[in-house]
Design a protein around this nucleic acid. Structure first.
Length: 359
DNA sequence: TCTGGGGTCCTAGGACCC
DNA sequence: TCTGGGGTCCTAGGACCC
C-alpha cells in the first residue's frame, strides 16, 4: 500500500502522520478514505496559486510546492496593509483556485512560518512586533525551524524544552552542543532575530530522483537499469532548466535503512545523459561489494554543482564561472529567472550596455 | 506493515596550492 | 631541511524540511 504522503486534519486527529505506513494508518483510522496521489494536479494548483502571489508581491520565495514567503513591505499605498493583503489573497485563492490557504504575518520569515503553522488550517494569524517573544517563548523547541528529532533530543537532555529556555541559554553553550551554524541560528530565532531576506525565485541548487526498492533483493543488472532510468529523468529536467552540473551523487539506502552517498565531480559541467550515466554507473560499480553485503532498499541520483549553461559556454575558468553564477543568482533574486537568461546572453558578449529590466 | 520522493544547509578531513 | 598559516576544492556524512 505504500506510505501516507499527506493526511486530512480528521485523519491526523486519529494519529495518522505523514510517512506512516499504510497499514498502520488504516489501523489507527479504519474509516479513513485512501486515495492515490495526483502530482500533476498538485503542480497545476501550485502554479495557479503562485501566479496569484506573483501578482501581489514583488518578492515571492517558494519554500515547497505549497508554501511561500511574500515580502509585502512598502505596499501599503498600493495594496493595503499586510493584513488586508492577506485577507484578499485568501479570498482570491479560494475563489480562483478553490483552495483554502493559511497565512502567518510577522516581521521575519521564521515568525511568519510559525504563525502560519499555528493558524492552520484555513487561518490567518498576525504576530505584532511587540508580541513576538510572548508568542514564541512558550512554544516547544520542536517548533524552531531547524530543530528535528536529533536536535530536540539533545536540547531536552540539557533540560531545554521551550523556545524561551533556548533564548535563555548562552549562544556559546548552544554552539558547543549543536555546532557553530545551528547554535547561532537557533539562538537568533529564539530571540526573534532572523535576518534572512525573502529571496525572489531562488535558483535550484540540485536536481535529483530516487526510487525505493522494497526489501526484495534485486539483481545487479536490474539495479543498474533503474539507475540509468533515474539519470535519464534528471538529465531531462537539467536540460529543461538550461543548466549543467558538475557533480553526480549516488544515494543508497541499505537493508538496515542506513544511508550512504557516493559522489564524483567531473572536470567540466555537462548535461549529457551519456556522460552522467557513465559517472553514475561507475559509482554504482564501486559500491557493489557493499550492496551485496548489506542489501539495497533505495537508489537515487542527485546532480549538484549546477551552473548556468551559457556561463559554461563562455568557457571561463572555474572560479570566474562561479563568480558569474553567483552574480546571475543575484540577478535571479531581483528580477526573476528569465532575466538570468538575458543577463547571461549579455554576459556572453552580446551587448553589455543594454539595461536589465524586470519583466 | 517495516520507511516516499523531492529538496536545503552544515561539517569535517584530506589533497593541494600559495 | 624543517616549519607555519591561509585558502579552495572534493568527498562523505548528517540533520532537517515539506
Amino acid at each position: 500500500m505504500g506510505v501516507v504522503l499527506s493526511a486530512s486534519y480528521e485523519a491526523r486527529a486519529c494519529g495518522v502522520r505523514t510517512a506512516m505506513g499504510g497499514g498502520e494508518a488504516r489501523r489507527r483510522c479504519p474509516e479513513a478514505v485512501f486515495v492515490s496521489p495526483r502530482f500533476d494536479a498538485y503542480v497545476e494548483a501550485s502554479r495557479a496559486v503562485f501566479a496569484i502571489f506573483e501578482g501581489v508581491a514583488p518578492a515571492v520565495e517558494a519554500l515547497s510546492i505549497d508554501e511561500a514567503f511574500l515580502d509585502v513591505r512598502g505596499l501599503e499605498h498600493i495594496s493595503g496593509t499586510p493584513v488586508e493583503i492577506a485577507q484578499a489573497l485568501r479570498v482570491r485563492v479560494r475563489t480562483d483556485v478553490g483552495l483554502p490557504i493559511t497565512i502567518g504575518i510577522a516581521r521575519t520569515k521564521f515568525l511568519a512560518k510559525v504563525a502560519s503553522r499555528v493558524a492552520k488550517p484555513d487561518g490567518l494569524l498576525v504576530v505584532e512586533p511587540g508580541e513576538e517573544l510572548d508568542f514564541l517563548h512558550p512554544l516547544p523547541v520542536e517548533r524552531l525551524w531547524g530543530v528535528g528529532e536529533v536536535t530536540a533530543r539533545k536540547l531536552r537532555a540539557r533540560g531545554i524544552t521551550t523556545v524561551g529556555e533556548v533564548a535563555a541559554t548562552p549562544e556559546a553553550a548552544l554552539v558547543e552542543l549543536l555546532g557553530r551554524a545551528s547554535g547561532r541560528h537557533l539562538n537568533g530565532l529564539a530571540l526573534g532575530r532572523d535576518p534572512r531576506p525573502v529571496k525572489h525565485r531562488a535558483r535550484r541548487r540540485s536536481i535529483g530522483a530516487q526510487r525505493a526498492l522494497g526489501r526484495r533483493p534485486r539483481p545487479p543488472d536490474e539495479v543498474r537499469s533503474i539507475l540509468i532510468a533515474l539519470v535519464d529523468r534528471v538529465c531531462r529536467r537539467l536540460r529543461k532548466a538550461d543548466r549543467l552540473c558538475r557533480t553526480v551523487v549516488l544515494r543508497l539506502r541499505f537493508g538496515d535503512y542506513e544511508r550512504a552517498t557516493r559522489s564524483h565531480t567531473l572536470a567540466r559541467a555537462t548535461a549529457s545523459t551519456a556522460a552522467l550515466q557513465g559517472a553514475a554507473t561507475s559509482l554504482l560499480e564501486a559500491a557493489e561489494p557493499t550492496i551485496r553485503h548489506r542489501g539495497l532498499t533505495l537508489i537515487g541520483v542527485a546532480l549538484t554543482g549546477l551552473v548556468d549553461e551559457r556561463a559554461e559556454q563562455m568557457a571561463l575558468p572555474f572560479d570566474q564561472r562561479r563568480e558569474l553564477d553567483a552574480a546571475l543568482d543575484r540577478v535571479a533574486e531581483r528580477f526573476g529567472s528569465s532575466a538570468v537568461t538575458r543577463a547571461s546572453r549579455l554576459g556572453a558578449g552580446e551587448d553589455l550596455t543594454v539595461p536589465l529590466l524586470p519583466d
